[in-house]
Nucleic acid binder design. Structure first.
Lengths: 101, 101
DNA sequence: TTGACATATCGCTATATAGTTATACATCTA
DNA sequence: TAGATGTATAACTATATAGCGATATGTCAA
């Protein structure tokens, strides 16, 4: 009759996926990277400059975020642009921020 | 005139807090614990049984979640009950789950 | 071609922490 | 009291990964 307010029970796999997702957001540098591309796509070197990290480090984080389909990646000549693909993360961040006052 | 749609810029401290929050949700066992208390408070031993982990491990995770004000803790005799304090985490999980299909 | 620049990857170190076992601490009951 | 039960903590191991320097790969321009 009434549909249950909360999902029945999370499977092992669902829990892992969920955790993996949150874990990706659980690094300040990755949040900084997300922030830097939240309005428009940028090249790796632009993101390096915006975040103040090293090229190798940024590149690694970008790969992680892109593999998780949070960022989209497209190449233009010798440049690679990364942009926000999963807009949901913005909502997540906003939600948590209000929580943190 | 128009208020900016997104916050100006996250400070170092805000980023760290945000990341710390997400990091707490980035462990399958902690999500499992949260799931076990999302409807009603339970004692540590109940949670141990529900999650299938060890008492020491559960106790440690409970402490982390309680320190972060995600769980509330109250003692009744020799029992300690943990319950969901920050209901927002349910919304977060729900949001991410829909995202994961 | 060569050199300059952009990006990705490799090998490494340092650090954080999940999980374990054993033990300490707290609270009840007999 | 003493013993049983519930919870927390300490010490430890194993593992994951952030960040680094060096290098490989890819793409342009001269």
């Amino acid at each position: 009759m009434s549909k249950p307010k909360s999902p029945p029970r999370l499977s092992e796999a669902e829990l892992s996926h969920l955790a993996a997702r949150f874990k990706l957001l659980g690094e300040a540098m990755r949040l900084r990277i997300l922030e830097s591309v939240c309005h428009e796509s940028h090249t790796v070197s632009e993101i390096v400059e915006m975040t103040g990290s090293t090229q190798a480090n940024v590149s690694k984080h970008l790969a992680l975020l892109a593999n998780a389909n949070i960022l989209e990646r497209h190449k233009e000549g010798q440049f690679v642009y990364y942009g926000l693909k999963d807009k949901l993360v913005l909502q997540l961040c906003a939600l948590v921020r209000t929580q943190l006052q």
